[in-house]
Write a protein that binds this DNA or RNA. Structure first.
Lengths: 341, 341
DNA sequence: TTGAAAGCGCTAACAG
DNA sequence: CTGTTAGCGCTTTCAA
């Protein structure tokens, strides 16, 4: 009972014309008579003809599909980016093929392989924590598949990217703490080889230096940016000779860990201890106190990458797909760092 | 400088054999000599041959791709489901093509169209709020493309589905409130035509009835399940002749709205007012007090749908792709409803 | 303005 | 065991 897919040949046969005529009519080719054009159109509608994009892809070598590789889909920031990407690309008839790396290099390499095989027109990549080299990316370049980085990029690869200015975000964040009167500000840092975390550290150092504060090496505590990492960092920090009066965490979950540990230790936030995070995870606005953090503009980032790709796909002048866009992050000031009201 | 994609013909030419021999060698066809097999394999490795899946799809009529349609990617529950789906399907060599409806029927119909054109092997669908009819689905059935519902399903469509037992979840939730001594429990309900919301209401009614409590019609307050909906429901509820002592909300955001409004009104939660939600959004465990809610097993759901599809794809006995799996939800008891400790 | 034919890369039936 | 051939559905010369 299942009607098979209708092809241009079915329509051609029905109208006693050739398949090429149908093809031309359907794409409004200039050299086709209006009468046949409308006849074909009518028949196509009647049979509810849907072109087989697989065939079109094979013929044209373009799949109208874009591959997206993220550490995890189920992370607010990444799903926001994907949401933005999808919205923009769908409007131009592109599809999304999605892979997760779970922060593993092997998965990332496999995903790239997979997406090459699927003949995607471009790959949007946010590299995994484990990724340190770029061998797996070389092949993309060789095959002429466009690559765009978002959020987490590898250095010295000449390709398009959209990131937020993590250094600025951290700078604004820490400057705000200084403005509030905090002085001994500890930084809970992420892994150094990831560009975003080293940038956040840089922003922290710059703000402190601009504020005339000497940062001891042990004020920077590197931990996994999860709740337990934050807790651990809190306890480590509280053992320092000069007790910190604030924690700037490179991630919101770590900030949450610090907050919880601080409460258990009987400290009042923000009076006894200021705490700020980074990422603007949805939960941060519901904490008590609400958490000061930095918004990374996920959806905007997705839309921007999409735009970049579409621009060079459509041959917009000047678009070579190698721009490096830096979005302005937004400091969201909330109660966890607000002394002066 | 870009190396083109290597095809079996390139390898065939290099080895002076035919393309079909290469094809057979590569898929370990039984009737092929070991010597040519290994020679082909070696050459394929050397050239880093990657089969063109587009060509394979065209030939076989199967794309090894599954379409996923959700209201929004950027919603914790849905991205969890997608995460689970991706993990299971990737392991079997399937890809995911993702569309969002933003809760609009038109977008849903367009997405289905798109995915049919892309010749996906199946579609996993969680219907939009607006969707009330099933015309757009009919075509899928006609074309023999498998359809699976997850979480939000349309009634009387004979196809596979995985949902959580929303009625049970609500029943457990409300029974727990009753056990804690709450009696006048108001239900903040969602739109009635969505199966999950009507099921939650049913569970509420059943629990109340089993608890020997008469539910007044005005104890059920239908609102959009967002923060402002919860606030509005709180104020409405508090104006009832018999003041409620608890709110069971069909969604966590609505519960958050109730919680915030209750705090502003000077009520203590859970002492003066019990509050429970539904969905186990990540923020619920960080609220003060932490929110009692129901976990919907998103990732598990994704894996289950994937399994269902893979089973009938692989022709596992008894798998016809029309099972209706109902997962057990899990009541997460937290402080917003816990009087007896 | 239209048709015939070739080919995108792969596989499978058929024939040696 | 291997080669030849045809065809998946579409587009695009080339020729009429």
């Amino acid at each position: 009972m299942k009607k098979q897919h209708v092809t241009i040949h079915d329509i051609a046969r029905e109208l006693s014309v050739s398949a090429s005529t149908v093809s031309r009519a359907l794409q409004n080719h200039p050299r086709i008579s209006e009468s046949t054009r409308s006849a074909v159109q009518k028949m196509a509608d009647r049979y509810n003809y849907q072109p087989n994009v697989v065939a079109t892809s094979l013929r044209s070598g373009k799949s109208k599909t874009v591959g997206v590789i993220v550490p995890r889909i189920n992370r607010n920031f990444f799903s926001s980016v994907i949401g933005g990407l999808e919205e923009s690309l769908a409007a131009s008839g592109y599809h999304l093929m999605i892979c997760q790396t779970h922060e593993r290099y092997d998965n990332e390499a496999a995903a790239i392989r997979t997406l090459i095989n699927a003949r995607v027109d471009a790959i949007m990549l946010s590299i995994s924590m484990e990724t340190k080299n770029k061998e797996h990316i070389q092949e993309l370049m060789d095959k002429g598949i466009r690559l765009f980085f978002f959020d987490r990029a590898l250095e010295d690869i000449e390709t398009g990217s959209v990131v937020v200015d993590d250094e600025l975000g951290a700078y604004l964040n820490v400057s705000h703490l200084l403005e509030q009167g905090y002085r001994k500000i500890v930084h809970v840092a992420g892994a150094d080889h990831i560009n975003i975390y080293s940038a956040r550290k840089k922003g922290y150092l710059k703000a402190m230096s601009d504020g005339g504060i000497d940062v001891h090496a042990d004020w920077i505590i590197q931990r996994p940016l999860i709740v337990s990492g934050g807790e651990s960092a809190f306890h480590r920090g509280m053992k320092l000779p000069a007790k910190p009066d604030a924690f700037f965490c490179a991630g919101d979950y770590a900030a949450l860990g610090v907050l919880q540990a601080a409460k258990i230790a009987g400290l009042n936030v923000p009076e006894d201890l200021g705490i700020t995070g980074f990422a603007n995870e949805p939960f941060t606005e519901f904490l008590e106190p609400t958490l000061t953090t930095v918004d990374q503009k996920g959806e905007e980032m997705g839309k921007m990458v999409a735009r970049m790709f579409l621009d060079c796909e459509e041959g917009i002048h000047g678009a070579d797909g190698c721009e490096n866009v830096v979005l302005q992050p937004e400091l969201i000031i909330r109660n966890s760092s607000l002394l002066t009201r």
